[in-house]
Every structure is written in structure tokens, then in C-alpha cells.
Design a protein around this nucleic acid. Structure first.
Lengths: 199, 199, 199, 199
DNA sequence: AATGAATGAGTATTCATTCAT
DNA sequence: GATGAATGAATACTCATTCAT
């Protein structure tokens, strides 16, 4: 469809240049569609960008959701979720770039969209942690602010994804494991030689 | 001094609108100085932005560095470092915004400056972790990729800082403690009811 | 065509104010076209100016070339060439102004273009003189530096053209005759009462 | 004196960059004087330029005037005058550049100044020619428009001077002789092998 | 339905010129 | 008398956006 064609091009171009430096001209060229078409189908630049973000966010969420196996124990769920996330980042690099880097630049105009994605991700994590906690009979974790911990985890995962873009010689499984050792085991256990491993 | 006056204004405006949308006109107005003065003292827009980033990065590093008490055990060092970081974010909100959000937008032109800051931060954390690890006679941590873990921690801290901007009713100490419970104890210990607390 | 429309306006404005003082705004206004069109069709100010010069130079050369009747004796050829030149100056006053006065001002950036024109003119004259000389079996003239004489003649013709702009009550034929009496006969013959006249 | 110091610098800078591109900053720097001084002594940029032209024009006229030996026959007077002119051009290259090239660029603002110089030069030449003519009992020359011929001669001399700047391996005497052969003898005589030589 | 052609509005940057000292 | 510091005003250039076809 025309709409999809244009969105694909837009994501590519926004990813390459960022919101401001991306030109409608280049987008129309890459899409192989005239500029008036873009305006007719997707509205002004701002709308277009918003729609890019929304679509890519949905894609990513879906990918992660599919990765999580809810029949497994919480730690394994988290691990699989992280792997799915990293696979997505690897496969849809442009999507990731747009979501993570470019979406922040537009004066908070799109913070909403991105925050929505982030909240969703955070919700997923929170659920996991809380579940794990309650299973063990400890609601304590929530008091340490489940949301805040989830936010931190998401930030860590994102940051590591960025790092990965420049150190791509590591598998998604290893990457996820590293992160598990940080957030599941903590430095303290690591120091003690106590590591986490997928079972 | 004039230079400082201008840089302050520039940080404020860049923080508000981002690099591209910020206009030299607004900066000059906020600074209470005519535009030619800006060019004379700090050069073109790009230079100006670079100088903003460099100054704020230096400030932040200094603040964190001063917060860390190297005579304390590693976990306490980390905790104090985090607190210093959050105090800085709270006090110099604009600095933080510019460093974290806006610096990424300029086509990687300034990635260098920001990455430098980030590397410095990561180095500090790495040093702590490695120190802690070796004290216990365990080089293991390195195999989990010290750098990657440090990257993750920094990401987590940044992400939490962002979250904090919208949930400012928490003290920096609490915030740092939350993060310590994530990275030092890990979910596993938390679930077990094993929490980290400043001593 | 749009391109022609713009070039016409540009020549007019450059002729009036010179390269530096001419503003793209005025050109666009005179052309009855918006500024972006100028940039789109003809590029930046410098390109625009270069294109003006090139077009006018070509025009002028063509005009002169068409004026020369190569079947006539050398002196008549020269006379006809000069007439054609003055007719061109009279008809395209702006072209002449741009070529002669304004093209020199841009820091030698366009000296090339103009010098090319001048060389062409000089070549034509040189050819004539040398032809005349060799017909009479005398290569001597070249030894008096054909090029230098040609340069001088061109300079004389240009200077006279400028003078003419303020004393337009003289026909191109008369003007050309005056010049012939200078360069063909010389003061000496004139003093002797020996004048040149078209046959 | 301060005034002279500034004028010297101005001529140098105007000669290098032309009127528009020359900056008051550079002039003040070259003069070793602060900008307000320039304004105080010589007025605004336009005034300054006018004064440069006036001074250099006077210098040049004086130089030529001193070169002419009025006790000699007209052709020798002319030849000596031309030599003096070329010696001046060689020695005060900047003066010549400013007078000939740069003065034309300013939208006719300074045409007056330069034309004044030119008229003076033309007057000198006219006088010579007329004198020569009348001595021979022939008022004819005037009918060929003494002024126009003078204008042409001056143009030829200027043009040749410009050419000389790029072919400096010729003495001023030779240069003047070439020109004499053009304007005194004419192509016709040259073709006949009849050349002019200083006696 | 689709586009080539056109533009309004905005921004960085530069300099001649002048105060305050 | 002399200047460092400051600015008003001007200009090239770009790009999102829309008609006329």
C-alpha cells in the first residue's frame, strides 16, 4: 500500500538524519512518491513522524511480547523478552534508532508517543517482577518502587542496545545474559561468584 | 563574565528547544546580549553548542567525582556517586537535559563530546566494580564484560533520572538506594527479601 | 522560459548595482519570481552571476562575429566588427555594463570568464592584423607584439564604448571610423591629413 | 601623520579585496590604528575610499606630468608621458589597482573621482594631439573628435597596463613604444614597414 | 488520483558604525 | 585623544507546504 511505502521511507530517512535534518524531499524521493501524496496520506511532517513512531513502537512491543514465554519462570521470561528485544534491534536497526534517538529531539512533542512505548515495556517488566516477588510471598519489591526499578531496567537495556550497535560481535543471548546478571543477580552476587545462567 | 552569561542562556534555550529549534535570536535575548556578541565570544551556533556540552559535561563529572568518597567500600562509593549525580540533575536540570537529550540530535556531530562524558562515567563505574571484584579475589566480573555492565548501569541511572524529572517527590538518597538494590542486589536477592541499605 | 526571465532580471540588477550590492531580493522582484525559484533554476548568487556573464559574453561575441564580413579586406573587417560591437553596446547596455564594469569586482572569481571573452576578442583582432601584415609580406607587426597591440586596441574600443554611453549622439559607424583612424592610420597620418574612410 | 598612515593602509586593503570585500577591521589592523580613529580622521567607508582615490589620482597625474618634457616634439612628449605612466603603475601597483579596477565597482558612486582623473589625462593627450595638428596647419583632427581619440588612447594605455601586470618582463620604454606604434603610426603604416622609434 | 512548479516565512551570519570609558 | 566593546540592520539561503493542472 502507498501508506506503508511512505512510512518505510520515512523511518529510513528519519533514522539517518534525525527529525529536523530529514527533508520531506528526501523522504518523497526514497518513497518513490511525490510530496503532495505524502501530505495527502499522512499529513504534515510532524504527523508523519508521529505515525512512524507509533508504528515502530507497536512493532517492537509485539516482537517482545511474542518473545516472552509465559509458561516459564519469571527470570526465564525476562531473559527471553530481552533476547527478543535485542533481536528486534538487530533486525530493525532503523526502527530502533528512530525510537530511541530521534524521538527525543523534537522538544518533547513526541515524548508522549515514546513514553507510551516505554510505559508498556515497563509494565511488562513490572508485572514480571511483581509476579516473581509475590510468588515468593514478598510484596516488598513494589515498595522499592517497582516502576522505578522497571524504568531502570528498561534504561539499562536500551543503553546496552546502543552499545551493541558498535560492538555487534556478540549474540543476543549473551547480551541478554549479561543484563540478567546485572539486574537479577546484582554486583554483590557477581562478586561472590554467583552468576545467573539460562536453564 | 560575558562568556558565562551567554553560555548560561544558551544552555537554557538549547535545553528548552533542542539544537535545531533553538534560535540564536532567542539565545541572545535570554542572554541580554546582542547576537554579534555571541559570535564574537563563542563562535557560530555549532561551536556554541559544543561549548555548552563541554562545560556541562565537565561540571557534571566534577560534581560526581566530588561525591564519591574513595575511602569507603565500593558499594558506598557507588551510592554516593549516584546521589551526587542525582543532586546534580536536580540542581542543573537544564544541563542534564542538554547533555542527555539534545546532544544526540545533531547528526552525531557531538556524539563525540557526549560519548566522552559517558565513557568517563563508565570508567568510574568500571573501576569500582572491578575493584570490588578483585578484592574478593574474583576476576569473573570482567568476563561478564565489565564495560557492558557499566554501560547498562549508566543507562539505568540516566533513565531513572529522566523518570525522576516527572516524579520529583523522592529524595536523591532514596533514588540512589533504589538503583543500588537493582544493580547491587539484583532482583533475585530482592525477591528473597535481601535488600541493600547504606551503612 | 523561467530561466531566461531570471537571467534577464539578474543582468539588469547586477548592471545597476554591481555584484555585491545587488540583492537576491531585488533580482527576484524584478524577475517577478520568488527567490527559491532563482536558487532552484540557477543556483546561488555566485553561480547566477557567472551564468549572466557567460550568457552575455556569448551574445556579444556572436554579435561581433556576425558583424565581421570575412570576404572584405582586413581594414573593412575591423571596421565592421567595431560597428557590430558598438551596436551591441547600444542595444544591450546592461550586458555591456555587467561585462565591462561589474565582472571585475568579484575578487578575480570571475576574471576567468571575462578574460576568456577578452581573449576571444583579442584573438579576432590579432588574426586580422596578422593577416593584413602577411598579405603585405611583412611579419613585422607580430614582432611589435601582436598580442599587446590587440590588447591595446580592445582597451581603446572598450574605453570609447564607455565614453559613448555619455555621448550617445554619434552613430556607431562614426564611432568605428574614429577608432579606425586611431589604430589604422595613427596620429601621424592624421596630422598629415591622411584619413581612413570606409570604402 | 595619522591620516597618511591610514590612507596607505586603506589603499593596500582596497587594492587587495576591492571596495565591498575590504573590511574596516582589516584596514584598521593594517594601519595599526583603532577603528574609531579612522572614522574620526577620514569619515565613513565611502569617504575613505573617495579620499584614497583622490590621493592616488593626484599622485599619478603628478608623476605623468613630471615625465612629460614640454620642450620636445609632441610624439616624444607622448612617449615620455606613457613611460612615466608605466613607471608609476609598476612602482605603485596598489594605487593603479584601486584606481583602475576597484573604483568602478561602487555603482558609479565614485565614477566622478575617477572620471576626473581620466579627463585630466585625456586633456593632456588632447592638448598634445591638437598642438601637433595645428603645428602642421591642420585643424582636421578636431573633426575626428580629439576627445574621443584621447579617450581611446587612454583606454589603450590602461588596458596595456593591465596586461603588463601579468607580463612584467618588458621595460616601460618598450611598452610605451608599442603603444606609440599603435596610436602614432597606426596599423597601416606598420603593415607598410613604417615604424615609430624614439629619437 | 497525482504532480511539477511555486512560495512564504524563517534563520544564521556579517559589518559598518558608535558609545562608554 | 584613543579604544575596546557593543549593536542595528541587512542578506543569502532553505524547506515545509500548497496550488494549478
Amino acid at each position: 500500500m502507498r501508506e506503508r511505502q511512505i512510512l518505510d521511507a520515512a523511518v529510513e530517512v528519519f533514522s539517518r538524519h534525525g527529525y529536523h535534518s530529514a527533508s520531506m524531499d528526501e523522504i518523497s524521493e526514497v518513497a518513490g512518491v511525490s510530496k503532495p501524496m505524502i501530505y495527502s496520506y499522512l499529513g504534515a511532517k510532524e504527523d508523519l513522524f508521529a505515525k512512524c513512531i507509533r508504528r515502530e513502537a507497536a512493532r517492537m512491543l509485539e516482537a517482545v511480547r511474542q518473545g516472552v514465554r509465559s509458561e516459564l519462570p519469571p527470570d526465564m521470561q525476562l531473559w527471553h523478552g530481552l533476547r527478543a528485544f535485542y533481536r528486534f534491534v538487530a533486525e530493525y536497526r532503523d526502527s530502533w534508532t528512530v525510537l530511541h534517538r530521534q524521538a527525543l529531539t523534537v522538544g518533547g512533542q513526541f515524548a508522549g508517543e515514546v513514553n507510551l512505548l516505554r510505559s508498556r515495556a515497563i509494565d511488562m517488566v513490572s508485572a514480571l517482577v511483581v509476579t516473581a516477588g509475590t510468588k515468593k510471598g514478598l510484596g516488598q519489591v513494589a515498595e522499592f518502587s517497582g516502576p522505578a526499578l522497571a524504568v531502570s531496567l528498561v534504561g539499562a537495556a536500551e543503553s546496552l542496545a546502543d552499545w551493541w550497535l558498535d560492538h555487534s560481535d556478540v549474540s543476543d543471548g549473551v547480551l541478554a545474559s549479561w543484563l540478567m546478571n546485572l539486574v537479577w543477580m546484582g554486583f554483590n552476587d557477581l562478586i561472590e561468584g554467583d552468576v545467573w545462567q539460562p536453564r
